[in-house]
Simulated assay, not measured.
Amino acid sequence: MSEDRKPRILIIGAGSMGVLTGYHLSLAGADVTFLIRPHRAKALDNPQMLYCYDDNNLKEYKSYSYITNPLLILGSDYDYIVITLDGASLRNEAGVGLVRTIGDAARGTNTKVVLGSIFFDLHAWFLQLSGLADEQVTNGHLDIHAYSTKALTLPLEAPVDPNLIAKADFAYTDKLGDGFTVDDSSPAVANGFAEIYNASGVSRCTVKPALECAVAINPLFPVFAACELMDWPKFKDIDGEELWSLVVASVREIQELDIHGELGKQAARTMTEAGLAASLAAWEKHMIPLDLQAFNRFHHGEKLKAQGREHLQVCISYGAAEGKPMAALKDLLRRVQEHEVEVAAAQ
Results as ranks from 00 to 15, higher is better:
residue 228 E to F: 13
residue 338 E to L: 14
residue 263 L to M: 15
residue 266 Q to R: 12
residue 198 N to H: 10
residue 277 A to D: 00
residue 220 L to T: 15
residue 78 Y to M: 01
residue 209 P to W: 04
residue 169 D to P: 10
residue 338 E to Y: 09
residue 220 L to Y: 07
residue 283 W to Y: 11
residue 247 V to W: 05
residue 315 C to I: 05
residue 128 Q to H: 13
residue 282 A to C: 00
residue 134 D to H: 12
residue 117 S to H: 07
residue 70 P to L: 07
residue 19 V to M: 03
residue 146 A to M: 11
residue 3 E to L: 15
residue 311 H to P: 00
residue 177 G to T: 07
residue 261 G to Q: 04
residue 288 I to D: 04
residue 320 A to C: 06
residue 111 T to L: 00
residue 173 T to K: 13
residue 82 V to S: 08
residue 238 I to R: 06
residue 302 E to N: 05
residue 264 G to F: 09
residue 38 P to A: 13
residue 118 I to M: 08
residue 228 E to W: 07
residue 244 W to Y: 09
residue 285 K to M: 11
residue 152 L to V: 15
residue 92 N to G: 02
residue 257 L to E: 05
residue 10 L to P: 01
residue 99 V to K: 09
residue 215 V to F: 11
residue 66 Y to H: 12
residue 96 V to Q: 15
residue 180 F to A: 01
residue 253 E to A: 08
residue 287 M to T: 10
residue 173 T to Q: 13
residue 279 S to I: 02
residue 104 D to W: 01
residue 146 A to R: 13
residue 329 L to A: 07
residue 76 S to H: 04
residue 20 L to A: 04
residue 262 E to V: 14
residue 32 V to K: 00
residue 325 P to H: 10
residue 261 G to R: 04
residue 335 R to P: 08
residue 299 H to V: 10
residue 199 A to W: 00
residue 106 A to H: 00
residue 203 S to K: 07
residue 246 L to K: 12
residue 127 L to N: 06
residue 207 V to C: 14
residue 266 Q to M: 06
residue 257 L to P: 09
residue 280 L to F: 10
residue 103 G to M: 09
residue 77 D to W: 01
residue 263 L to S: 10
residue 275 G to E: 04
residue 66 Y to R: 04
residue 33 T to R: 13
residue 79 D to Y: 02
residue 269 R to M: 08
residue 107 R to D: 01
residue 148 S to T: 13
residue 304 L to I: 03
residue 155 P to Y: 05
residue 115 L to E: 03
residue 253 E to W: 12
residue 83 I to V: 15
residue 215 V to R: 12
residue 119 F to N: 11
residue 121 D to L: 08
residue 92 N to F: 01
residue 200 S to I: 02
residue 187 P to E: 09
residue 10 L to N: 01
residue 107 R to M: 10
residue 117 S to G: 02
residue 323 G to T: 13
residue 250 S to I: 09
residue 131 G to S: 12
residue 239 D to W: 04
residue 159 P to F: 07
residue 85 L to A: 11
residue 70 P to N: 12
residue 277 A to T: 01
residue 281 A to Y: 02
residue 178 D to A: 15
residue 295 F to L: 09
residue 154 L to F: 02
residue 188 A to C: 02
residue 237 D to Q: 09
residue 180 F to C: 04
residue 101 T to G: 05
residue 219 P to H: 12
residue 44 L to K: 06
residue 61 Y to P: 06
residue 253 E to K: 12
residue 179 G to L: 05
residue 222 P to I: 14
residue 165 I to D: 07
residue 83 I to M: 10
residue 120 F to E: 08
residue 106 A to Q: 01
residue 301 G to R: 07
residue 202 V to N: 05
residue 198 N to Q: 05
residue 290 L to D: 03
